[in-house]
Design a protein around this nucleic acid. Structure first.
Length: 614
DNA sequence: ACATAATAG
DNA sequence: GGCTATTATGT
């Protein structure tokens, strides 16, 4: 570790040893019924709404099922897969709360005295979305200069690297300035001994036979810490303060993981729950990861992970550690290197702030199925009203007045059939309301009927066994101010005359968001793509940026600041998207040719190898 | 541009 | 078993 790492603003990726990433997760967030997770609940939201004490045995019910169980109720033996009656028997003082629902003829969702039923009501998750936003806003206020990524309704990734670097300089003045006889690439003096006491669970660097032992809190004060450890310790202090403030200000508890990358931080935050935090140092990574089910790694939890498991007869990370990179690449292609690096604790995925919601969906499933077009149209009213309300609310927020969806999508599930969807442009219309949405939905339904007539067997045709309806907006973005007048005029014109063709051609006058493109071009940030072959790698034009990043990793040479990197990224996007050059460079370290798009991953690989050598 | 799948909570 | 959101991929 050199003075450069401390004194310059290094890029926040796997090659920055002072990178600090936090994953924070509300203890009482959302509990999707299909999730395999056992303990998450959204009961904390309801506890706050109802002003109940922290030990109130709340469960949240949806119809007669349980979708959330508070820790107190869980301690009383209530588990999911039970219905509300069984739960009450187990826990007589249980406090059941039904999720908010839309009731026929009422605009706003609410909590009703009469128990809502699936036949007449529709679940609303709006209250939870709102609370989730509050939590996110709190994070931005608490860490105003850190990049924050909303990972779900109740989870965030926070890049604390820069904030922590500043605090290291403050706290350790003896490295705050480059000594006159040194250069930026000279090694730093050792840090003093530090303590992690009071900062949560510290994953041990020592090997223990059983999981219980590994969970214990070690201070390891007898070992020489690295500056990387110091960075995590300072990050952990900050996160600890954040959690305390969150409880004081919002009365929510959360759990957090602090480590050098997103994958590790995420696994750590789930290590101890509730109301706890876990720190994972680089020297403890192998110890921590090796015995773990590799499917816990984000993006390996699904079908691809199962394929991997079957192919290598592997259950744990250690089972995969023995697979040579080349062998994995032969079978699983480009994404192998991401896996290879990640299971060794090396991962460059970036914490990227996603500014705005890009889509919103309202869906309703039916049990028993819905069988007539009349019923479908009835539910269209409810779904349209919900979307209308939600878009209205979004546009009511500061600076979101111009938000408008590019298109509207109708998807329909019928029994024993895969879900089908149809979409159409949703031109700007000043006369915005439920009726406008409903009209589009019914137009889409007509298209559905027409297309289903062609290829669906008679007895399963639309309107017979509808399982689920979903109406959604996609491509939510700001409409250009100038276009609003014109498009609004054309839009309402088309609405009245039923002429959607003309306005459809003007739909693309929506401000494009550069965010999405930027992510695809950043190969160091890309999670593995799950498909075997991509014919065309995304062309990036990032050669210059990646080359300089790679060089700085290698020779510890040029100081590429984070800011500079961003600017260059933005610049190159505008020039490069049409350029089809397929350039490769020779890696100066191993002398093999590397595609420019793969350079980030490739230098991560050397980083992983260096770690293994130590 | 559109339709669908995969992954996530 | 039910309600969402994002990203990738094939056409």
């Amino acid at each position: 570790m050199s003075y450069r790492n401390i004194l310059t603003n290094c890029p926040s990726d796997a090659r920055n040893p002072l990178r600090v990433i936090c994953h924070a997760d509300l203890d009482a967030g959302f509990f999707p019924p299909s999730s395999h997770s056992h303990f998450l609940t959204l009961s904390q939201f309801e506890r706050k709404r109802l002003n109940l004490p922290i030990d109130a045995p709340i469960v949240v019910q949806q119809w007669n099922g349980l979708i959330a169980i508070s820790y107190p109720a869980r301690n009383a033996g209530v588990s999911r897969h039970e219905n509300i009656f069984e739960a009450k028997k187990k826990c007589p003082n249980l406090i059941p709360v039904h999720v908010a629902t839309y009731k026929e003829g009422v605009e706003e969702p609410g909590y009703w005295d009469d128990p809502p039923t699936q036949a007449t009501h529709k679940v609303s998750l709006d209250p939870y979305r709102r609370e989730g936003s509050k939590v996110l806003k709190f994070m931005h206020d608490y860490f105003p200069n850190s990049e924050i990524e909303k990972a779900s309704i109740d989870e965030q990734y926070i890049d604390l690297t820069e904030m922590v670097r500043g605090k290291i300089i403050e706290r350790y003045p003896f490295i705050a300035h480059l000594p006159p006889d040194k250069t930026l690439d000279d090694a730093l003096p050792y840090p003093p001994i530090i303590s992690f006491a009071g900062l949560g669970n510290l994953v041990s660097t020592r090997e223990e036979e059983d999981d219980d032992k590994r969970e214990h809190c070690y201070t390891d004060t007898d070992t020489q810490p690295s500056w990387s450890d110091v960075a995590l310790q300072i990050g952990a202090e900050a996160v600890s303060g954040m959690r305390r403030a969150m409880y004081e200000q919002l009365s929510y508890t959360c759990s957090a993981g602090i480590s050098h990358n997103k994958i590790l931080a995420k696994i750590c935050s789930a290590w101890k729950k509730p109301d706890a935090q876990t720190i994972l140092r680089q020297t403890a990574v192998n110890n921590f990861l090796a015995p773990m089910r590799f499917q816990k790694i984000r993006s390996l939890g699904g079908k691809f992970g199962e394929t991997l498991a079957a192919h290598y007869d592997a259950a744990s990370v250690s089972d995969l550690l023995t697979v040579p990179l080349s062998e994995m690449q032969r079978h699983f292609g480009e994404e192998s290197i991401w896996i290879y690096n990640t299971i060794r604790g090396v991962n460059s995925d970036q914490v990227t702030q996603r500014v705005m919601t890009k889509s919103m969906l309202a869906s309703k499933s039916f049990r028993p199925t819905v069988k007539t077009v009349g019923e479908i149209r009835h539910w269209f009213k409810i779904l349209s009203s919900e979307l209308s309300q939600r878009l209205k609310e979004m546009r009511g927020e500061q600076d979101k007045r111009t938000m408008w969806p590019k298109s509207i999508v109708l998807s329909i599930n019928q029994l024993y059939q895969p879900s089908r969807s149809h979409q159409s442009p949703f031109p700007y219309n000043a006369a915005f309301g439920p009726e406008l949405i409903q009209k589009h939905a019914e137009k889409l339904l007509r298209e559905f009927v027409a297309s289903e007539m062609k290829d669906i067997p008679n007895e399963h045709r639309l309107g017979y066994e509808v399982n689920k309806l979903a109406l959604s907006f996609s491509g939510l973005a700001a409409v250009e101010a100038g276009q609003r007048g014109i498009a609004g005029f054309l839009g309402s014109n088309s609405g009245n005359s039923g002429n959607s063709g003309e306005s459809g051609e003007r739909r693309d006058k929506v401000v494009k968001h550069k965010e999405a493109k930027r992510q695809r071009t950043d190969s160091t940030a890309a999670a593995p793509s799950q498909k075997k072959k991509k014919k065309d790698q995304p062309k990036t034009g990032l050669t210059a940026f990646l080359a300089s990043a790679s060089a700085s990793a290698n020779a510890s040479a040029s100081a590429t600041t984070k800011k500079q990197g961003k600017e260059m990224t933005t610049e190159t996007i505008t020039i490069s998207s049409s350029e089809e050059e397929n350039d490769t460079d020779v890696c100066p370290k191993c002398k093999i040719p590397v595609k420019s798009t793969d350079k980030g991953q490739h230098s991560d690989l050397h980083f992983a190898e260096d770690l293994a050598d130590e």
